[in-house]
């Protein structure tokens, strides 16, 4: 299955992936309208220090502990992609607690959000990968 992988050697820590992610999932057609003057809730986050940076997002594990631990059945695996049903999420945040990668986060209104490889929006391919200026994030079979 194609997944998002990170080549930390080439990550510049520019944070463009975060903004592209937030925009792709905003449902808006204009980035300024979507993100200007508002708190931004990206599903990919840049971690690191002044020497190294890398983008952290859902690994779409083969045996996802978040799905197993979800008490409301909001998390599910569809064709290998771990997806969240926002209507079912009860904001218990167990998934955030158990995710070993820190890839699940609280979104707007406290509802849990996570990378769904842009299958639920109109981006077509992961927006973080599409917008990365240095191929530090790639979407490929490994």
């Amino acid at each position: 299955m194609k997944r998002v992988y990170v080549n930390e050697e080439w990550c510049l820590g520019c944070h463009l992936c975060e903004y592209n992610c937030a925009f792709a999932n905003s449902g808006e057609i204009d980035m300024s309208k979507a993100l200007k003057g508002k708190p931004v809730f990206p599903r990919v986050k840049i971690d690191g220090d002044e020497h190294i940076n890398f983008a952290v997002s859902c690994r779409h594990c083969d045996d996802p502990i978040c799905v197993k631990s979800c008490i409301s059945g909001a998390l599910s695996v569809n064709n290998g992609v771990i997806q969240i049903d926002h209507n079912k999420c009860v904001k218990c945040l167990t998934c955030i607690l158990v995710c070993p990668y820190g890839a699940v986060s609280e979104g707007e209104h406290g509802i849990v959000q996570k990378c769904e490889l842009c299958v639920e929006n109109s981006c077509g391919e992961p927006a973080c990968v599409k917008g990365c200026p240095n191929r530090a994030i790639v979407y490929e079979e490994r």
Partner: peptide
């Protein structure tokens, strides 16, 4: 200013 979302990419780059 209507477009700038203060993402700070310019500052970092």
């Amino acid at each position: 200013d209507n477009r700038c979302i203060a993402c700070r990419v310019c500052e970092r780059q």
